[in-house]
């Protein structure tokens, strides 16, 4: 059996992922999270007399809290895996990755378990987020002065 021929055969017999469908699901779910968050922000402004700029901060906290709570209650992983990138890209994904790692490693101790593994998945988001922010802010200064 030839390796290259085998590779071709595997490619031919492996069903293709429907990327279009995945993208549409992710777009609709991610968009829905945005709409819900906007609703929460408006609610905060109108019912609790919180300033508009501050309301977004509170909304973000609420979304993170809810995603973490749902993860801890044990059903959020099914939602995340079925909605493709829909729940991963918003803050819900970040919260989910941190909480799930925390839950998983709590038995390995506070330092060697939770401490060392909490940002196992989210670590790269933080690192490249900070590096990205650094370069974009330099770019911002150059362009806008």
């Amino acid at each position: 059996m030839d390796k290259d021929e085998y590779k071709k055969l595997v490619k031919q017999l492996t069903p293709k992922e429907n990327k279009g469908k995945n993208a549409i699901i992710a777009f609709l779910v991610g968009g829905a999270i945005g709409v819900i968050a906007e609703g929460i922000a408006n609610l905060l402004v109108h019912c609790f007399a919180i300033a508009k700029t501050e309301s977004y901060l509170w909304t973000c906290l609420i979304v993170i809290f809810v995603a973490s709570l749902f993860t801890a209650l044990g059903f959020f992983d099914n939602w995340v895996s079925k909605t493709k990138a829909g729940l991963i890209l918003p803050t819900t994904g970040f919260a989910h990755s941190v909480t799930s790692a925390g839950l998983d490693y709590k038995r390995d101790g506070l330092i060697t378990g939770i401490g060392a593994n909490l940002f196992k998945l989210a670590g790269s988001v933080i690192l490249y987020g900070i590096i990205g922010a650094f370069f974009f802010s330099i770019l911002g200064v150059i362009i806008y002065g």
Partner: peptide, 17 residues
């Protein structure tokens, strides 16, 4: 899951294979 893939409660999207 923990040994080979992701933390247990993490819901990574999986493909058909």
């Amino acid at each position: 899951e923990r040994q080979f893939r992701f933390p247990i409660e993490y819901g990574a999207p999986k493909n058909g294979t």
